[in-house]
Design a binder for these strands. Structure first.
Lengths: 195, 195, 195, 195
DNA sequence: TATGAATGAGCCTTCATTCAT
DNA sequence: GATGAATGAAGGCTCATTCAT
C-alpha cells in the first residue's frame, strides 16, 4: 500500500532543495514542503536526513554509470568510446542542472560520502574509464607506458572541474561546448604519436 | 592588546580539527581545546565559525599562490614552468597532510566557499596556470588552437583529482610519484606536435 | 457492526505490551501488532491511548474485586475471610504474571490513574477489606481500638509490597509462599489478645 | 567556575515540576523556567532528562537512608528503633510535600527506577529495616519464627501505602497521626506474646 | 469494519555566540 | 585580553491520531 513513487518524489524534491540551499542548510521540512507532503512522511521512506543524501547520490551515480556503460559499449574503439564518454558526461549534467548543482557542489562534503556509502558507485565510474583506457592500450590507440590509473583520475578530474566551474559560473554558457576540446587534449595526451 | 599570534594558532588548530571531523561536525569548542584556549577567546579574533574557515582558506590559498608564482617565475620556459607547478602542487599537499585533508575534502562544501569569499584566491591560481599556458602558446611550446581556459581547468582538475584520491586513499602512497605522468600527459596533450 | 471480542483482544495485547515496555514506552502500533490488527482499528474501540490503560485497569480491578467479594463471602468469619483474601491476592497475581507486571509496576504512574478514572475501583477493594475488618471488630476477633482505615491501608500496602518485590525480583520464587506469614503477622497485629 | 549550587537548584525545581505534572508530562524547559535558568543550562549539569529523575531519586533516597540510620542508631532497643523509624518515615514526607508527591507517585514508573539505577538506594532502606528486625529477634523482642524478609516488606509496604493514600488524598490530614497505630499493629504482629 | 499511509504538533538536545567576571 | 558558564534558537525525529480507500 505504501506508495512506490514516494521515495523518488522525495529524492527529486531533495535535489531541488539541496541545490538551492546546500545540504546542511536545508531542513527536512523544506524537502517535505517541496515534495508536497508532511515532514513526518519522509520518515516512512528514509530513516534519517543523511540517508536521503546517500540514497540520492547512490541512485544517481548508479543510473549514470549504467547509462554510460551502455552508451560506451555501442562505440567501436577506445578513442570513440572516450569521446562518447566525455560528451555524455557533460551533456548529462547540462540537462540536469539541479542534479549538477548537488553533485558538483553539495556532494563533495566530507568523509561521509566519497569515503562512505557511495564509494562503490564512484569507483564503478572510475572502473569504466579505466577499462576503456586499457582497451585503448591493448589496441594501440593509447601509449603503452601511460599509467592507466593516473590517466583515469586525470580525465575524471578534468571533466569534473569543467563541470564544477560551469556550475559555479551559474551555468552561463554551454558545458558541452568544451567537450571537443577536452577530448582532443586528453586523447592527444595519451596517444602513441606524441613526442 | 590582542595577541598577534593567536589568530594563526586558531587557524592551525582549526586545520587539524576540520581534518579530523569535517567542518560541520567540528565544534567551535573543539577548535578552542585544540588551540589550548577558551571558546570565547576565538570570538576575539573571528566573528563567526564561518569566518575561520573562510580565512583559513584565503590565507592558505594566498600563501600557496604567492609561493607558486615565485617558484614558477624562476623557470625558463612555459613547459618547465608547468612541470614545476605540477610538482609543487603535489609536494606541497604531500608535506601538509592536515591541510590537504581540509582543502581536498572539507573545503568543497557548498556554495559558501568557492562562490563566496575565497573565489578571488582560487581564481588567482587559475590565472597563474592560465598565464603560463598563454606564455607557452606565444612561444610555440603549446598549440595555438588550445582553448587556454579549458586547458587551465583541465590541468587544475587533473591535479586536484589526483590529490583528492590520494587523500581519500588515506595517503597510502606518495602523491609526487604521479607528478611526472601528469606532466607528460598534459604537456603532450597541448603540445603542437601531436597528431 | 463492531466485533464484540476486539476490545478484549486489544486489552489483552496491551497488558502484554505494557508489561514488556511500560506504558509510556509502548506505541499504539505495538499494541496493534501484538493484537494482530491495524493501528487504526484500535481507535474504533478506544478514543485514546490513555483510555486503553484506564479501561484495562478498571476492568481488571472490577473483575478482581467481584471475585474477591464472592470468595470472601463464602468464608465463616472475619479471620477466615482475611486469610482467604490474602491468599487470593497473591495467587491471582501469581497466575497472571503479565497482569501483575502491569498492575504492580506500570499502573503506578502518575496522578492520572490512582487519582483519576480508576479511583472508584481501587476504593471498592479498600472497602471490601475495610468491611471485613469492621466485621471482625464487631465479632470481637479484632481489637476494638484498631483504626480500621489505617489497618486497611496497612494490609493492602503489605500485600502490595510483597507483590511488587516479587515482580521486581523477576518472580524468582512463589509469591503464595508468603501468604501464611503475612496473614499471621497481620492478624496477630490486630488481634485482641496481643499485649 | 561552574556553579556548585546549580545541580541542586535544578533538582529542586524538578521536584516541584514533577510533583505538579508528572515526569512524562514535564518539559525540560518547564524545569528550566522553574529553576530560573535557560533550558540549555540544564545540560551543563545533566546529560539527559532521565538523569535528572534518577539523580533526584538517588540523592533523596541516600539522604533519607543516612538520616534514618543515624536516628535509629540513637535508640535503645529494636522496638524503640522501629517506632522511631515509622515516625520518621511519616514526618519526613509530611515536611516535604513536593518530594512526597514525586516519591510516592511519580517515581513508581516503570522498570527504569526500581529496577535500574536506584535499586541500590532502595535496598539500603530495606536493609536498615531488616537489620532492626533481626536485632529484635536476637534480643527476644520479636518472635523468632517471623520471616524477617517478609516482615520487612510488610512494614515498608504498610508505611508506603499510608503515605501514598495521604498524597493522593491531597494531604488533607496529618500523616503522622497514623504513626502510632501503624507501630502498634506492626509491633504486636511480630511480638512474641501474641497468640 | 478494517486498514495503514499520512499527518503535524511537540520536545529533547545541540551548539554558536554572548557577557559577566 | 581571557575565560567558560549561560543562553536560546533551531531542527531532527517520534508517534498519537486521522482519514481515504
Amino acid at each position: 500500500m505504501r506508495d512506490p513513487a514516494k521515495p523518488q518524489q522525495i529524492l527529486d524534491a531533495a535535489i531541488r532543495v539541496f541545490a538551492r540551499h546546500g545540504y546542511y542548510n536545508s531542513r527536512v521540512s523544506d524537502i517535505a514542503r517541496e515534495a508536497g507532503i508532511a515532514a513526518g512522511t519522509i520518515y516512512l521512506y528514509f530513516k534519517t536526513k543523511d540517508e536521503i543524501l546517500v540514497t540520492l547520490f547512490r541512485e544517481k551515480m548508479a543510473e549514470w554509470v549504467a547509462h554510460a556503460r551502455r552508451e560506451v559499449a555501442g562505440e567501436q574503439d577506445a578513442v570513440a568510446k572516450l569521446r562518447r564518454l566525455i560528451t555524455l558526461h557533460f551533456s548529462t549534467l547540462e540537462q540536469n542542472p539541479d542534479l549538477a548543482e548537488v553533485v558538483q557542489v553539495e556532494l563533495r562534503q566530507g568523509q561521509k560520502f566519497f569515503r562512505g556509502a557511495s564509494a562503490h558507485e564512484v569507483s564503478a565510474y572510475f572502473e569504466l574509464i579505466h577499462s576503456v583506457l586499457e582497451e585503448g592500450m591493448a589496441s594501440g590507440q593509447i601509449r603503452h607506458d601511460v599509467p592507466a590509473r593516473v590517466a583515469t583520475k586525470m580525465l575524471f578530474g578534468a571533466m569534473d572541474q569543467l563541470a564544477t566551474s560551469w556550475v559555479l559560473g551559474k551555468r552561463g554558457y554551454r558545458l558541452t561546448e568544451s567537450a571537443e576540446a577536452v577530448a582532443t587534449i586528453f586523447l592527444q595526451g595519451v596517444s602513441p604519436n606524441g613526442i
